[in-house]
Design a protein around this nucleic acid. Structure first.
Length: 484
RNA sequence: GGGGAGCUACGCUAACCUGGUAGACUGCUAGCUUUGGGAGCUAGUAAUCGGAGUUCAAAUCUCCGGCUCCCCA
């Protein structure tokens, strides 16, 4: 007999019908994250914080391998520092939260809660950098930043506080600074592919959409299931903009004083929003195996008479595999197997192992994959190898389907009518563009579509093409899309 | 940026229109029976978003604030 479905443990909205509602239900009901008492700020519960630790640890390791050092600067930034670089403060000022008093005493100078740390960090860099021998100086910090968004907040995708890395480097030459971009974007590409199982499109941002204070920005752009784009990790070439504003100079080996060339780069917990939206389904969360706190759950199926025997058998399996995977042996007596199945599916555990009297008799186990519901019978001869392959398959399936979705929804357009049609349907409109901001502005005004970025891998296609709007010779290929 | 809907226990919801005992389901606690896709019975536990107003009396009516969601830009 089918029991009443409990409301708080189910996803009632459908991904295909009501995406926003579904998205929130998946996050909250799977206990991945929760709302907090602060508007627009979410709580990372153990499941999501664990996932973030995996992302962070991997990226951090790669940074360190490349010679980047970790530091930590204060959360609060004096107002005078924030105002040193004009474009930068203009870009952030509407979203800055301020500390104006302590206890009952009003502060002489307001302190900003960092929306990003250029201002506070570069004040110190100007003291630390003296000689060409001090360069390059490549620093990173893992922290949170606060941006008091006007638009209504969405868990992970747009929260008023989020976690990220912020890398800040200073070089003697422009060439060295530019070369760093490839390395950093490569690391971000790898963590997206190998950990989050997400495909993204790397490219350069347009001048209009670049970071406030940068001379050029580069990003990896994602496409959400609803056909809207989301900006992923980014890398910014800041040139001398900040070094001039913050007076970061060094004496080169000819004895001349010169400004350093700087870069900044970041990946944030926003990626989890993309990951959830991309991989999850109407049963709940689907987690890529490398981010799952529990990779395999073992559910023994027993009754009163064979309970000890079956749990003995499932314990044998647990002991066999626990050294190799993150395994939870679910011997909670108060829940039925069916209840457990639903719960672990909701929470996104990649593999569920079921063992009952049948499996015990045959000395095997049934392993069921969360993302496809496909199952396989695995003998106890060499379960670790088989389960490893299964987890790899799950990861690869998720990545491939993410990639397929982006490719299937990227449409080459050659004229404005096609562009409008693609924007209306959703997805990337891969468009030749003359490079003028007038055309970019008009497209944004008329279609709501933003220039997400200019994908590296298609730039040569601009040759011989004409701007999708004005018809002048194209300089770039831009992906236009509505965005989140 | 513009419009709309909503907020009662962790969750979902009844009572609201027509002011007067907050009632189910789920959860949680305990006990007994169960256990191959959300088990059953019994007992217990737990709620009106915040503030102000109107009133003998406010979940209900009015105003202000907070939060959440949706649609459009």
């Amino acid at each position: 007999m089918k029991a009443e479905v409990t409301e708080n443990r189910t996803i009632s909205a459908k991904k295909e019908d009501n995406f926003s509602e579904w998205y929130v239900q998946v996050i909250i009901n799977s206990e991945f994250a929760d709302y907090s008492a602060v508007s627009g700020c979410i709580v990372f519960r153990p499941s999501s914080y664990f996932a973030w630790e995996q992302v962070r640890d991997y990226v951090d390791g790669r940074f360190k391998d490349d010679g980047i050092e970790n530091v930590y600067f204060p959360t609060l930034i004096p107002e005078r520092l924030l105002q040193k670089e004009g474009e930068h403060i203009i870009g952030f000022s509407p979203e800055v939260a301020w500390v104006t008093q302590t206890g009952d005493t009003k502060l002489d100078e307001r302190l900003a809660v960092r929306p990003t740390s250029e201002a506070i960090m570069y004040d110190n860099l100007s003291k630390w950098i003296r000689s060409w021998r001090d360069l390059p100086m490549r620093l990173n910090q893992w922290n949170s930043v606060v941006r008091w968004e006007f638009k209504h907040p969405t868990p992970f995708l747009r929260t008023r506080e989020f976690l990220w890395n912020e890398g800040h480097s200073a070089f003697a030459s422009e060439e060295e600074a530019e070369a760093e971009g490839k390395v950093i974007l490569g690391i971000y590409h790898d963590v997206l592919k190998d950990y989050l199982a997400l495909y993204g499109i790397p490219g350069e941002k347009t001048q209009k959409e670049k970071f406030a204070g940068a001379i050029a920005s580069f990003s990896i752009e994602h496409l959400m299931p609803d056909g809207k784009a989301v900006q992923g990790p980014a890398f910014h070439l800041d040139g001398n903009n900040f070094s001039k504003a913050f007076d970061i100079k060094f004496i080169d080996n000819n004895g001349e004083k010169r400004f350093v060339f700087q870069n900044t780069w970041a990946i944030s917990t926003r990626e989890f929003g993309v990951m959830i939206a991309t991989h999850s389904d109407n049963k709940g969360l689907v987690l890529p195996p490398k981010l799952a706190k529990i990779q395999i759950v073992i559910v023994p199926i027993y009754n009163d008479k064979n309970r000890d025997e079956i749990i003995g058998y499932s314990t044998e399996i647990y002991n066999m595999i626990k050294g190799e995977f993150r395994v939870y042996h679910d011997i909670r007596d108060e829940y039925s197997p069916g209840w457990k199945f639903n719960e672990w599916e909701l929470k996104g555990v990649p593999i569920r192992v079921e063992v009952g009297k049948r499996e015990m008799g045959e000395r095997n186990m049934v392993a069921k994959m969360r993302h496809t519901s496909g199952s396989e019978s695995i003998s106890l001869d060499n379960p670790i190898e088989v389960l490893k392959l299964m987890l790899e398959k799950i990861h690869n399936d998720l990545y491939e389907s993410s990639k397929r979705f982006v490719i299937d929804n990227t449409h080459v357009v050659e004229n404005y009518t096609d562009l409008k049609e693609v924007i209306k349907r959703g997805g990337f409109a891969q468009s030749p563009w003359c490079g003028s901001q007038d055309c970019e502005d008009r497209i944004k005004d008329e279609t709501i579509a933003k220039a997400t970025n200019m994908p590296f891998h298609v730039q040569e296609l601009a040759k011989g093409k004409r701007c999708v709007l004005c018809g002048k010779p194209a300089k770039h290929i831009v992906n236009f899309s509505r965005s989140h």
